[in-house]
Design a protein around this nucleic acid. Structure first.
Lengths: 157, 157
DNA sequence: ACACCTTCGTTCGAATTTGAACAACAGGAG
DNA sequence: CTCCTGTTGTTCAAATTCGAACGAAGGTGT
């Protein structure tokens, strides 16, 4: 009976938030995966690699940096970059300042693939997430999840 | 230049919400996965199977029903239920009202495994998500993501 | 220069996930 | 009853993911 031994379970609001998060996350990923694959032949992960590279100053990032942004394992990234390299969308360069370093660079073909895939993807994100929320819900969600992400980033370090 | 041909890209707030969602989702899954595996030898998916079965009236659900709740593929569920069955945490029964049907049922050992795993899991969810948010952020998040989930559920039908 | 600890990216094997194909059955229209 | 369409759960091959182990190199203190 003591609250010191019994864990604090989630009250209805908390449970709804957690469950909503898990369910929405799974459903969204599933839907976006399907759309991207059918529309562009890319997986969501591959698409995100292209996005992050495209957003980088010179269209290139070091592997570790990219893995951090994607929130994936190093080995997982190695695999996906190899796939994208075979498809000609990404190229590997060696890092000038670090012999160990490998730089993934977006090719022109990669940029084109992203240009082709982005509109449909963004439209679906908008339709399934953004436009479902009010502007206020959206900002609260951005702030809240930003805090959660920050909290989680700290734990790793 | 025409807004009819150009897709509506995400403004800063929208992008922050979407990125926050993706990043928080990945970081959380990653962290919870690690904790559950180390603490109980269960994957997050396996844990969720036990949770949903435990929440069902008689600790049992049909495969399809369970797959819907978990937001996973049927084949994925078949695999995981087989794993849990080997571990003795879940048993398969045949459905009385439908010869094709298979009912996954929580064993006593499964209930015990859940009792053992739940506190640590809930504590971490609380630490990483719930307690990071204000009560208001939490309710807004629950409502918003509930709407998103509902929107996505409709699409399948 | 030396030892020491960390970081980098890859490789490896094992585990997991997926969609398509499948056989068996359910449920209704005629 | 008899088609006909939809559902159910599984199997299968292929793709993906992960963590641990690894060789190689960076960086620091002495």
């Amino acid at each position: 009976m003591s609250p010191l031994n019994e864990p604090r379970w989630l009250d209805p609001d908390e449970a709804a938030a957690w469950r909503g998060f898990v369910v929405a996350s799974n459903l969204l990923n599933r839907r976006l995966e399907r759309q991207l694959k059918e529309d562009s032949g890319l997986s969501h992960q591959q698409y995100e690699i292209l996005v992050h590279l495209s957003a980088a100053p010179d269209g290139s990032l070091r592997m570790t940096e990219l893995a951090d942004k994607l929130v994936t394992s190093k080995s997982g990234l190695t695999y996906q970059v190899t796939q994208l390299e075979r498809a000609g969308l990404v190229a590997r360069r060696s890092c000038p300042s670090d012999v160990r370093g490998v730089i993934a660079e977006l090719t022109e073909q990669g940029r084109e693939a992203l240009r082709q895939a982005a509109p449909g993807h963004v439209a679906l994100v908008r339709e399934l997430l953004i436009d479902v929320l009010t502007r206020e819900q959206l900002t609260v969600l951005a702030e809240g999840l930003g805090a959660v992400s920050a909290r989680l980033r700290l734990e790793d370090a």
